[in-house]
Amino acid sequence: MSDLVYQPTAEQLRRWSGQRVGGTLRLTGPCPACGRDVTAAVSATLDGLETLDAGAPAPAGRTVSIACTAGCGRRWNARAEVEASGRARLAPSPDARLDEAAEAWRVAGTEQEGRLRAAAEKWIAGVTALLGVLTVGGVGLAAEPMRKLALGGRFAVAAVVAVAVVAAGRAIVLAYRAAYGWPRRTSAPDDAALLEWHARRREQPSVIARRLRGAATAAGVALGALVVAATLTWFLPAARPPAPLVRATMRDDATVCGTLLAATADGSLRVRRADDGEVATLPGAEVRRLSPVERC
């Protein structure tokens, strides 16, 4: 056991008093090691990264870890019992497992602001990378090869590119969560919840490894989907060129404007009128001029 850990007696702890204010226990009393007056605030909630996410009421009784703020640097554990009125009293800690969990909770509380700020800075790069993936997907959908494909081919390539974008985004999120976690609020109002939080904290290495494997798998899926999308643009059939629009000027100066269709008889032209959609059959001998146009 560390020399900084002090084992207070029941008599020393009876000199402490406290009050529950919301979800926080505010405790005051003499340091059992040096005798100087010490104040401590023990919250039932903790804003951290990837810990037990559970809502709970204000603490009614829980093992707490207290550090001397008067200069000696010693720390000790005690059981805080809270009455219905909100008044708190301390007693010796009943379980060594709870001592370890309570100390881990205290340390996590003192480090939470710095860890959250550091993680927020790293997540800026993650968000930027995600936006970059979305940009690449948009460029792929707007590329010239896409415009040359038939409609069915466009939908197929767009679906594959969407899979690539989703998989790439998942890879980025999983990788950043493995590296930096996700901010959550944890509640531990009693010893059972405290032990559960501590157990979940011990499981974090396996959770991180699982997320890294997921990130690698998703990145492979994204790369494969992009390769498939590129291959489809090469091998899918191109769209048929649109039928030309023409304006036919007859010998009597009448005009017919529309889509030029394949002829069904020699010496005649077939034009689907742009105004009413009817198909007009024009004798070739009556057509004085046939001109391509961009619109009718």
Score class of each variant (00 low, 15 high):
109 G>Q: 10
244 P>H: 11
131 L>K: 01
217 T>Y: 09
143 A>T: 05
76 W>N: 00
113 E>V: 15
151 L>P: 08
40 A>L: 00
248 A>K: 00
202 R>H: 06
36 R>E: 05
284 G>V: 00
282 L>C: 05
218 A>F: 11
133 V>N: 10
287 V>A: 10
281 T>D: 05
20 R>Q: 13
191 D>P: 02
182 W>H: 14
49 L>A: 05
264 T>M: 06
104 A>M: 10
131 L>Q: 06
133 V>H: 12
115 R>E: 11
117 R>L: 15
286 E>F: 09
118 A>P: 01
40 A>Q: 01
58 A>K: 04
19 Q>K: 13
26 R>H: 11
2 S>L: 05
246 V>A: 01
35 G>L: 10
220 G>L: 14
221 V>M: 13
252 D>F: 03
93 S>L: 10
240 R>L: 06
251 R>P: 02
56 A>G: 03
129 A>Y: 04
199 A>I: 04
172 I>L: 12
200 R>Y: 04
251 R>A: 13
91 A>V: 00
124 I>Y: 09
83 E>K: 11
125 A>K: 03
296 C>Q: 08
220 G>R: 12
246 V>G: 00
254 A>T: 13
165 V>G: 00
293 V>Q: 01
4 L>G: 04
242 P>C: 02
186 T>E: 14
224 G>K: 07
217 T>F: 12
